[in-house]
């Protein structure tokens, strides 16, 4: 996901908010004849504001999923308008996720820290973000280690289960123990209000311009489309 992030992403919380608005408005406008123009406009706006990687990455998924849904809807209803509405709903979801895909999770966490969100939430998010890559790395490592001990075959399920599950649990417990100790010994304290934020996330001119265009566009779309 990281490789899809924008180099200079928008204000993270605004990105998340944009995604929610696009989803809601996109679904409302899905039944209208020109509803897709709104989605196209938002896609273009995000493309121009640096989210081009995510904008381009979403196209194949959107095309395939919308194609399948259109085919199913048309086969069931034989109605062109219903088919277009189904496509618009899928596209609304796809355009809504672009804004989220374009921001790094750490930028969102930093944004929340800047706004003095509770540290238990920001640290929890930080650890959660890192957990899945860690789990994947550990799983891969353990699968390799199982092979080296001749325990990689699923034809021996009891051995397979032991050789996979035991090291995985031991590793995860060890890692979480070490991590919690490390965080505490590095001065982290839940409820501490005297911490600083090294790099604050600020709402810049670019964010303001985007917010104005997006809000105006959305309001006009709701009124006129």
């Amino acid at each position: 996901m990281e490789r899809l992030s924008a180099k200079r992403a928008l204000y993270p919380l605004m990105s998340v908010f944009t995604g929610i608005v696009v989803l809601v408005v996109g679904l409302i406008l899905a039944k209208r004849e020109y509803g897709m123009i709104y989605l196209g406009g938002v896609w273009l706006l995000l493309l121009l504001f640096g989210y081009y990687k995510a904008c381009l990455a979403v196209i194949p998924f959107a095309a395939v999923t919308a194609g399948i849904f259109c085919a199913v809807t048309y086969a069931l209803s034989r109605d062109v308008q219903s088919t277009l509405s189904a496509a618009a709903r899928i596209l609304a979801v796809c355009v809504a996720v672009i804004a989220g895909m374009g921001i790094r999770p750490s930028a969102l966490i930093s944004n929340l820290s800047t706004l003095r969100a509770p540290r238990s939430i920001t640290l929890g998010m930080m650890i959660a973000v890192g957990f899945f890559p860690l789990l994947m790395r550990e799983t891969k490592q353990i699968r390799e280690a199982m092979r080296t001990r001749g325990a990689g075959s699923m034809l021996r399920p009891t051995v397979f289960y032991r050789a996979f599950l035991l090291p995985l649990v031991i590793r995860l417990v060890n890692i979480s123990d070490t991590l919690s100790l490390s965080v505490e010994t590095r001065g982290f304290l839940i409820g501490d209000k005297n911490y600083t934020v090294y790099k604050k996330t600020v709402f810049g001119i670019k964010d303001g311009v985007f917010a104005v265009i997006f809000t105006l566009g959305t309001v006009l779309a709701v009124i006129f489309l």
């Binding site: 930080m126 060890n174 490390s182 001065g187 982290f188 501490d192 911490y195 600083t196 934020v197 090294y198």
Partner: peptide
């Protein structure tokens, strides 16, 4: 097992932030 941040800079700054050092 002790790394929580995605970037080197953020990881190094983490402890200093907790101690309330000025940016």
């Amino acid at each position: 097992a002790q790394i929580i941040q995605d970037r080197v800079e953020a990881e190094i700054a983490f402890g200093a932030e907790n101690l309330g050092m000025p940016p």
